[in-house]
């Protein structure tokens, strides 16, 4: 019970190596973009982090649906684990997006659909954690968490869609024009390869972190049960 499973150790090593390879490719292999320069290289891990964030939240919604049908606490643990990791990576996504935007669009923040949606998503899942904190009974906490994970994930595409047509009908001109056009660049094969490796590395990292977080959740559950048993 206490020792880390062999498969997890192997996965950790593979994820670590993959991340190192991806970072190496970003730093040394990927070409310098002609206009934006070095900051464009943030792009690889920025996109990969966004992908992991979406993966986490989507997985949590699926885990929520399965929890509501099966009522096994492991699905709830999976849901929290996925959301927590999703929050970390969405935060990375938003902050790196801002860092990229500063030199390229000349502003830390634009109300562009993707950036805005990612931030609202972050708020939704912070609310999720606050909801869970306010409920003591583990079974009820799991149920409510599942419901909110489903509703929250559903609202994400709706938010994105709303903001998107909000912008197309009334385009907001910020600084030097349409932000998506200013930051755009065409991908060379080396860039595509680097992006692909980053995506794979981050996906592996996601699975490894999820597993660790799941084990933490299981340990937490055991401790909670011990505590309840002692109190009674």
């Amino acid at each position: 019970m206490s020792t880390t499973p062999r498969a997890l150790v192997v996965l950790d090593v593979i994820a670590g190596l993959a991340l190192a390879v991806a970072a190496g490719m970003v730093f040394f292999y990927a070409p310098l973009e002609r206009v934006m320069g070095a900051v464009q290289k943030v792009f690889y891990f920025h996109v990969a982090a966004g992908w992991v964030g979406m993966l986490g939240f989507g997985l949590a919604a699926v885990a929520g649906i399965i929890y509501l049908m099966r009522r096994r606490s492991r699905w709830d643990l999976l849901g929290v684990a996925a959301i927590e990791i999703g929050l970390v990576f969405t935060l990375i996504n938003v902050v790196t997006g801002m860092i990229w935007a500063r030199p390229v669009w000349n502003t830390w923040w634009t109300w562009d659909p993707r950036l805005t949606t990612a931030t609202i998503m972050e708020l939704v899942y912070i609310a999720y954690l606050m909801l869970r904190q306010g409920i003591e009974d583990p079974e009820r906490r799991a149920r409510f968490g599942a419901v909110y994970a489903i509703v929250g994930f559903l609202s994400v595409p709706l938010t994105f869609f709303s903001i998107r047509i909000f912008r197309t009908i009334h385009p907001v001109v910020l600084g030097s024009g349409d932000p998506t056009a200013t930051g755009a660049f065409s991908m060379t094969p080396r860039m595509t390869q680097t992006l692909m490796v980053s995506l794979v590395a981050f996906s592996l990292l996601f699975v490894a972190l999820l597993w660790h977080r799941l084990r933490l959740g299981e340990l937490g559950e055991r401790v909670e049960q011990l505590r309840l048993k002692l109190q009674s």
Partner: peptide
């Protein structure tokens, strides 16, 4: 010449690895 945005690049990766 490409714009000199090296500090932003470093800041970006510092945030990424720092958060992780």
């Amino acid at each position: 010449q490409p714009a000199n945005t090296f500090t932003y690049f470093i800041a970006g990766y510092a945030v990424i690895f720092g958060a992780m």
